[in-house]
Design a protein around this nucleic acid. Structure first.
Lengths: 186, 186
DNA sequence: ACCGACATGTAAGAAGTTACATGATTCA
DNA sequence: TGAATCATGTAACTTCTTACATGTCGGT
């Protein structure tokens, strides 16, 4: 359950309420770990019981919001989690399942799917690259972020490598489809 | 719910029982779509209700096994599913979450994680390549498989591209870590 | 006065895993 | 005779999503 640890990761930097946590997720790690807001509140209460965090009613705000703080125990668990190696994660792809069973499908349709996936991947690469520019500009002077920024950059670079691989794979598959078609007409 | 369609995909080639379906999953698409055996039986019963498949008690076997057959309706739904474009699939990575929060972690530990991930990916590439050899040898003469084999190959090639990207990404990250360390000692 | 953002939750359902339960057949 | 494989299921639990429910605050 990464959600618990991701929350600890955010609270380790700055105390905040559930709603703010959701916004932090959306603005940073949602590319590889998304949450729905309704998932956050029960998890925070579980974490309170486990004494990984503490809570203070926010007196400033009359909206009844709460501030969650990480405890020493929370900090320990977070560090332990990050330090231990990540086991091989299960990979699922509906696209590959479809492809595996595509023998009787019109090749034009299959080719179209590859073209769409390729375009999606190219757009993602552009997005990631503009995001990398943003990180560079935003944080090259600010020392408070410089330690973290290198890791943020790595997560974005993962996306670039990954999407570049998808583009190359699509190109190869399209080529294979055309060759196959020509074999058939010989 | 891809499971339903994957089952249709297998039954479209050959009727079989639930246990055999599980084996087919394990021997082919489990790299990108795994199932647990206990998940198969309820799904088959749901599919029976939806009239996507029919069942015959297998009289040959005294073990009370069943044979499931795809119906015309099942064939239609399968084809429709494969033909429609796959929406962008949610991507989750615990590894990237850890990395995002690694600012206070010993750099040697982080580097070690990259080395391990790189090695895993390299082993996967070898495995995929030997699997590609196997497909080539096994099916280059057999006409019954030649139509499908190109798509099987594509799914394996996806793994090669993906894992190659991971290797390159790990190399870059290790390099970044070393540069960062040198910055610190200047 | 109303809308969008802020803020916290519950409930139901989907999809998947692990554990439990049962029993037949095959082979060493 | 005992273990591995074949064969089918149920139950509990985890994780996550969507829908529902409630109410505040700030700006137009």
């Amino acid at each position: 359950m990464s959600l618990k640890y991701a929350i600890l990761g955010f609270l380790n930097v700055q105390e905040m309420n559930g709603y703010q946590l959701k916004k932090h997720f959306d603005e940073s790690i949602s590319r590889f770990w998304s949450v729905s807001i309704s998932q956050i509140y029960p998890t925070l209460n579980d974490m309170l019981k486990a004494e990984l965090i503490t809570v203070q009613e926010n007196c400033d705000s009359s909206r009844g919001s709460k501030e969650y703080f990480i405890t020493e125990r929370g900090k320990e668990e977070l560090k332990e989690w990050i330090t231990e190696p990540t086991p091989q994660e299960p990979f699922r792809s509906e696209l590959l399942v479809k492809l595996y069973f595509s023998a009787n499908i019109d090749k034009k349709t299959v080719k179209q799917h590859f073209l769409e996936k390729k375009e999606e991947a190219q757009k993602r690469i552009e997005l990631y690259n503009s995001f990398l520019d943003h990180i560079k500009k935003e944080h090259q002077q600010e020392k408070q972020f410089s330690e973290a920024a290198i890791y943020w950059k790595m997560t974005v670079r993962y996306g670039v490598f990954q999407s570049t691989a998808v583009v190359e794979w699509c190109d190869e598959c399209i080529k294979l489809l055309i060759e196959e078609k020509e074999e058939g007409t010989k």
